[in-house]
Amino acid sequence: MTNPGKKFPGRPRSAQSHQAMLQATLELLAEVGFEAMSIEAIATRAGVGKTTIYRRYSSKAELVADAIESIREEVLLPDTGSLWGDMDALIQNAAQISLNPLGTANGCHDYQ
């Protein structure tokens, strides 16, 4: 049973740092892809230490999943006819949203 009044040691987690990590993850995912991106590159771009990321996420995949989930409502799920085509379209759409948070008119994003 948790104690709602219990305080944990250390500083509270920064919402600003968390958002910076998610944004950096989406940008790098779009720029270099999942395989080429690293936690170190994400940390550098977000302006946080690698330990800050590892305190919140156990893996790069978990961080990427959370980053994509953070924009899920803004992303239309593509259906290109293939899984890899869908993934490419999803990543491109996430990149567009992260680089242009206002998106396109009415929140609609085109897939190629």
Rank of each mutant, 00 (worst) to 15 (best):
A36L: 13
Q23Y: 06
Y54L: 11
Y57Q: 04
S58L: 11
P9A: 06
Q16P: 01
G47M: 06
P101K: 07
A105R: 04
S98D: 05
I53Y: 06
L76V: 13
A105C: 04
E27H: 12
Q16D: 15
R11T: 07
C108T: 11
A46C: 04
R72I: 05
F8E: 14
R56D: 14
R72G: 11
D88T: 10
C108E: 11
G81A: 00
G5C: 11
M37D: 02
D79H: 12
E40S: 14
L90N: 04
F8H: 11
A89F: 03
Q96H: 12
Q19M: 13
N106C: 08
G5R: 14
A67N: 01
G103N: 03
F34R: 13
H109K: 07
Q96A: 10
M37F: 00
E40Q: 14
P9D: 09
K7M: 14
S17H: 15
E27G: 09
T44C: 09
N100Y: 12
D88C: 06
E27W: 10
L99Q: 11
T2R: 13
G5A: 14
H109D: 09
L77V: 12
L90R: 03
S98V: 11
K6V: 08
T51Y: 02
V32K: 09
T25P: 01
A61I: 01
A24K: 09
K7S: 15
I53G: 04
N106L: 10
P12I: 10
D110E: 11
A65V: 00
L99P: 00
Y54P: 07
A20N: 08
K7R: 14
G49N: 12
E62I: 08
P78R: 01
T80Q: 07
S70Q: 00
M1G: 10
L29T: 04
R45A: 02
A94C: 13
E62N: 08
R11C: 06
R11E: 15
G5S: 14
A15L: 15
T2K: 11
A24W: 02
N3T: 03
S59V: 03
L29H: 05
N106G: 01
S82A: 00
Q23L: 13
E27P: 01
S58Y: 04
P9T: 07
A36C: 08
L26F: 01
A61W: 01
S17K: 15
A105M: 05
M1T: 01
A46Y: 06
V75M: 13
N3H: 08
E62V: 10
L29I: 06
P4N: 05
S70C: 00
K60M: 09
Q92K: 12
L99N: 08
G85C: 04
D66H: 10
A65T: 09
A61N: 09
S38E: 07
V32A: 07
A61E: 14
A67P: 02
A89N: 03
Q92T: 12
P9L: 00
S70W: 05
G81M: 03
L102W: 05
S82F: 04
S58M: 10
P9Y: 01
L83D: 13
Q112E: 14
Q112V: 12
K6N: 09
Y57E: 00
H18K: 14
A61S: 14
A105V: 05
G81W: 06
Q19H: 13
A36W: 10
V32M: 04
G103S: 08
M1Y: 08
S14P: 02
G81V: 05
G33M: 00
